[in-house]
């Protein structure tokens, strides 16, 4: 540890697990989703259909990632409010302090780190908003994806009972009206994937940039759970 710096805990093991489960799920969802959209690799594998099952496996992977995204979003929602480390919701409320902090974080990036007037030892309100945006995108994928999925349950029955398609219709049919029918829903599902990819690109860049220019080891938060801040800031 550099002299004059102190270690601060930021992400508990649970939070880090959620983080990496999300990463894996999203990468797998993008890869399998693009295959579903346009089956792009070799299809003439000289195997009987039963063995290769390429599209079916891709759809299986896609739905497994959907379940992972599902479960982690419940956890995340819980931690947003009750978590014992960072309680992002306190940073989401548009109070005067949060709004000015949000502006300061933006200014910090625009001035290339010449101006830094906020506390970097805790999650800042810019990141709180930025992460909330990702969770909204994921929930949106869940609604549109489940609408696409319930198309296949037209019979109204499923292996786990008829409540399942019933519930999916209840919760996701509004997407049909908002986005213009089956095809519209499929289109926004695909388009939102790109928003998620763009989000990921920005997120990785911001964290690397902070690590280099803030000199506080921010990127380590997602791995070891902690970062460093100047001792005098800790009081």
């Amino acid at each position: 540890m550099k002299p004059g710096y102190k270690k601060v805990e930021r992400m508990t093991p649970i939070m880090r697990i959620i983080h990496w489960v999300n990463v894996v799920a999203i990468v797998a969802a993008v890869v399998s989703g693009l295959y579903i959209a346009h089956p792009y690799y070799e299809t003439f594998i000289s195997d009987p259909a039963l063995d290769k099952y390429v599209m079916a496996w891709n759809r299986w992977v896609h739905f497994m990632t959907a379940i992972l995204v599902d479960v982690t979003s419940i956890w995340v929602a819980y931690l947003y409010v009750i978590g014992d480390k960072e309680r992002p919701w306190t940073k989401l409320v548009p109070t005067k302090r949060n709004i000015s902090e949000f502006g300061e974080v933006v200014l910090n990036a625009l001035t290339l780190n010449r101006r830094k007037r906020f506390d970097t030892k805790e999650m800042d309100s810019f990141n709180a908003v930025w992460f909330a945006l990702m969770h909204l995108l994921l929930i949106f994928m869940l609604f549109t994806g489940l609408q696409l999925y319930v198309h296949g349950l037209a019979s109204g029955i499923s292996s786990i009972g008829s409540w399942w398609p019933w519930m999916l219709h209840l919760v996701t049919d509004w997407t049909l009206f908002v986005f213009g029918g089956n095809m519209g829903v499929r289109y926004v599902h695909h388009m939102t994937m790109w928003l998620i990819v763009v989000w990921v690109a920005c997120h990785i860049y911001v964290q690397i940039w902070r690590t280099i220019y803030w000199q506080e080891g921010d990127i380590a938060i997602a791995f070891g759970g902690s970062k460093f801040v100047k001792d005098d800031k800790l009081d």
Partner: peptide
């Protein structure tokens, strides 16, 4: 939809590139 998406991603990459280059030239390390 992929052309739209790739366009968006390219715009993002350009933005990131400009910021990264500016930081490399004139950024201040804490």
């Amino acid at each position: 939809v992929d052309e739209f998406g790739l366009g968006l991603l390219t715009a993002t990459a350009i933005g990131i590139g400009i910021h990264a280059a500016a930081s490399a030239v004139a950024g201040k390390k804490s």
